[in-house]
Computed example of a mutant assay.
Amino acid sequence: MTLNLIKLCVGAESIADLEEWIALRLRLAGEQIHTTRMMPKNREAILDGGSLYWVIKGVVSCRQRILDLRGHRDEDGISRCDIVLDPTVVPVDPRPRGPFQGWRYLSASDAPPDLPGAGTPDAELPMELQRQLRVIGLV
């Protein structure tokens, strides 16, 4: 059974901010890695199609597919987990989410669905407007 992670995207104001950070990281390192302190214990379930869902400004806003989880020790000898992410950001149906520390598991049944893709009526609206309409329940 697939399992996801959810994490705060601290400092980002929008999905566009996150995408700019990803582009920079790809230019510098060739892949996008997000480093955390703890290695998920349910590694196999996460690598079975799981995604990292990003909370931006108190709203679950988008996700990235998790490609790998790599454990290592940093220069101070502290264990870390590198979450290797697909650079493609997929906007999701926005859901309010309160603050929390670190990452949390997110079951597939609790994960918000992806927003409509190109060619659907909603896709013609600007992404930020789609998000705002969904947050207030009009779409």
Rank of each mutant, 00 (worst) to 15 (best):
G50P: 11
D17R: 04
E13V: 02
G117C: 10
C62P: 01
W21N: 10
W21L: 06
I66E: 02
A118H: 13
A16M: 03
P94S: 07
C81M: 14
N4R: 05
G11H: 06
A45Y: 05
R65E: 13
G49K: 02
G77C: 06
A12F: 13
V92F: 11
L26C: 08
Y53W: 03
E13P: 00
G119Y: 12
H72W: 14
D122Q: 14
E124R: 13
G117W: 13
W54Y: 09
R131V: 08
G119F: 13
S61G: 09
R131I: 14
R131E: 12
V90W: 10
D122W: 10
K41F: 09
K57S: 07
F100R: 11
V139D: 07
I22R: 10
A111N: 08
G117A: 14
R43I: 14
W21A: 10
L47A: 08
A45D: 15
L125T: 06
I33P: 00
L69M: 04
G119T: 12
N4L: 06
G50L: 09
E19P: 03
P113G: 12
P40A: 03
R70C: 04
T88M: 13
L138C: 03
I22K: 07
R134N: 08
W54H: 09
H34N: 12
R25E: 09
D17M: 05
A118P: 15
L85T: 00
N42E: 15
Q132R: 15
E128P: 00
L47W: 08
G77S: 08
I22C: 07
Q101R: 10
R134P: 03
E20H: 05
L26G: 07
I56A: 08
P112D: 01
R104V: 04
W103I: 07
I78R: 15
P112G: 05
G71A: 13
S109E: 14
T35Q: 06
V139T: 13
L8T: 13
R37C: 02
I15D: 05
A23P: 07
L52R: 11
G71W: 03
G117N: 10
E124N: 09
L85I: 00
L125S: 06
I46A: 04
L69P: 01
D114G: 06
D76N: 15
S79T: 15
V60E: 11
C81V: 07
R25H: 10
L8K: 15
R37M: 05
V55Y: 01
T36N: 09
L129D: 01
P112A: 01
P94R: 05
A45S: 15
E128Y: 05
S79H: 15
P40E: 05
S14F: 10
D17V: 05
D93E: 13
E44A: 12
S107L: 07
W54K: 03
A123F: 10
A108P: 02
M127P: 07
L18Y: 06
P126Y: 05
I33S: 11
N4C: 04
R37Q: 09
G11Y: 06
L28A: 15
R43W: 07
L47N: 08
M127F: 12
F100Y: 12
V59S: 00
Y53D: 02
C9F: 14
K57T: 05
G11Q: 07
K41A: 15
